[in-house]
Design a protein around this nucleic acid. Structure first.
Lengths: 249, 249
DNA sequence: TCAAAAACATGACATTCGTCATGTTTTTGT
DNA sequence: ACAAAAACATGACGAATGTCATGTTTTTGA
């Protein structure tokens, strides 16, 4: 069940790296870390960043690979997963544009990635060598504070997730996930809140620590109760409030 | 089941704060964050730190309280817990001497504590006002880097915990916990590795996301299989290797 | 030291959830 | 447009775990 590294062949939009520095770009305005830098620091950092594109069958890095780069999501969605030896997978976090990753493991000085980073569709990633990242943090207290805040939020998120996994039933965990995705990433739609990324029952199962069958059955109930509608490509949250209530009942 | 705030009465070693600065002290040598500071910064930081003692029935702070201080564990063990409205509890982390806490939530500028900090027995805590903590981080890139590394490790830990909760059975989670406690905090003993803190079946249940009864039954099996021995006050890990094997099977 | 409280233990039973098998519907790539 | 692959769906069954009830042992505090 663990996916093999995809052949980097004949797919049009597969991994390709531009070594040139990243120019000032409206997409980058979403990246807080870059916005708080002084103009000189910002220029310097942009010179160190390079952009890479990945397709849905690529992996940005795998669990156990040595850490070389600090990363920022520029466009698209990236899944952070861990797997067991017998092929079961657990999705730790969906990274969205502006999210940082390997801002931590990189600190291990040559440590290894604790999980795999996998694009969900086409993504654009900015990256920077570890050394340049460290230099940026040492030069700019603002950047360091920003990373501390970011990591603090990620830690709180991860602990909240652990609490939910430890104490709640599968239907509550799924309701919490859907409500959270709706408020974080949802897009208003005539019938409700549409989720912008493809999300299969299996994807949800990996996110809430349940099997695909269990998620299918629960989604069936949710659909019957008019809480959600649609499947992977057009998943719409109809009643986030009632989902939240269900999650914490 | 949610414990009420204990009356701060007639218990001999209950919460008491010294407003005086902390003098150079061999116990502080364990705190990496303080050791990496330059001599001037170190003096300045020590002047900002104050020491507080708590007993086992005190709470250092509760979930929902506003964040005011940055904390360091000087002596003893502190439990970080989250609870649900219906009284179920989940222990997120056992903090040991040298551990930092609220190095993150404090970054929210007046945010609220996402969990409760509860001493397990008598503890000594160093703390520093949020403002002084920020100043330290801005002045010293070394301190900021240290906090980033610390938070990165905590994030990885939390995500590993989430993975275990999502994918493993209760006996595997318990085995992983016991093996981990043995290697992290265990003390060599003629019959095996003794755990230095009191740890009831209920404590373990809260740490692995299971009920007390389930943990009692599993511990019964572990005892029969000569993997562990003893109860709360004298818990001894007899075979950490076999526990680790069980955890990842 | 002694009584009360907490921790530990065990059984019966219910619930939740995973597993496996099978079939239908939707999506994908050419 | 069409075949293949993925995703979705459902039922039967069993394993893991929670719940409740009850009893024993250990620890605690005066």
């Amino acid at each position: 069940m663990a996916s093999e590294r995809a052949p980097l062949s004949k797919r049009p939009k597969t991994s390709s790296s531009k070594r040139i520095g990243v120019s000032t770009d409206s997409l980058l305005d979403h990246v807080r870390l870059l916005n708080i830098l002084s103009p000189q620091d910002r220029q310097r950092v942009l010179g160190e960043l390079s952009e890479t594109r990945y397709g849905k069958d690529d992996l940005i890095f795998r669990e156990g690979d040595p850490t070389e780069y600090f990363h920022i999501v520029k466009e698209g969605t990236v899944k952070c997963v861990k797997s067991t030896s017998d092929g079961k997978e657990c999705t730790l976090k969906m990274l969205m544009p502006g999210d940082l990753f390997c801002c931590d493991a990189a600190a291990f000085d040559g440590g290894h990635h604790p999980g795999t980073a996998q694009p969900m569709g086409n993504v654009r990633i900015l990256r920077m060598r570890r050394k340049a990242y460290f230099d940026m943090l040492r030069r700019s207290p603002d950047a360091a504070m920003e990373v501390i805040k970011y990591l603090g939020n990620r830690l709180n998120e991860a602990q909240e997730k652990a609490k939910i996994l430890a104490l709640d039933r599968a239907d509550q965990r799924l309701a919490a996930l859907l409500a959270d995705l709706a408020t974080r990433n949802g897009i208003k739609d005539p019938q409700g809140i549409k989720l912008p990324m493809r999300l299969t029952r299996q994807d949800m199962a990996n996110m809430v620590g349940a099997t695909t069958e269990t998620v299918i059955r629960i989604m069936g109930r949710f659909k019957r109760d008019r809480l959600v509608s649609g499947t992977a490509n057009r998943l719409v949250i109809l009643d986030p409030e009632r989902l939240k209530a269900l999650a914490s009942s």
